[in-house]
Amino acid sequence: MSVPALSLKDVSIKRADVPVVHGVSLDVEPASVTVLLGANGAGKTTLMDGIAGLARTGGGTVELDGHRVDKLPTYRRAQAGLAYVEQARTVFRTLTVEQNLLVSQTGDRGPEAAYRLFPELDKRRTLQAGSLSGGEQQMLVLGRALVSGPQTVLIDEMSAGLAPVVVRRLMRAVTDLVELGIAVLLIEQFAHLALEIGSRAYVLRKGRVAFEGACADLRDDSARLHAAYFGTAQPHGGPGPADRPRPDAAESERP
């Protein structure tokens, strides 16, 4: 088997001195989507912050393409081929769309690559990124990640608060990234959408890997998915609609 694009071994991470992620090991293969699921507060974002260097990892190793990066500062990991689409839709608001792309460009892959991925952005080149709609901003963040010439892209809940049609558009773009040979680690609240395009899946529960296997196994077996999320065998009535990341949340339930 080839070297994984991203490989974690026994990674633990604290947030404000509280242990949040405990001994997580996980591999992301090149040119494929690996899905990372888990309930609210399971530690998914914290794990990605640790991979990107925004949170300090204590113990364990993080390897990009076979090279250890866990002691490197964030920008060196980015330069080593890691891109990170953060949870908060982090465009540089005062810069234009094109400038956002130029800022992250490192190699020959320029803004045009992002416009090919999202022709919608082409017309918006000279607009300030802060004036874009939420969906467009998310496209820009994805495009910016692509322009940095990554081997691995981490994507954290890019669909939050977006209309179903936009979410599907973004999901298609993720598969486009995979066709370019990029490895993707995907956190997604609409679990079924992620499982459709993913090959491997990990479910985090309270900072530990509670399930690891093929996406197909979870896709067709919602009881198993539920068990992995919450550690109970059967789906039940549940604590109510406020319990956001239901593993089987359907996009049709959104306005």
């Binding site: 964030t74 920008y75 980015a78 982090t90 540089f92 800022v103």
Partner: peptide, 15 residues
Amino acid sequence: QALSEQPSTAQVVGI
């Protein structure tokens, strides 16, 4: 400018 606006994201994109 990117660094000034969002220091942590600027590093995330390799600055």
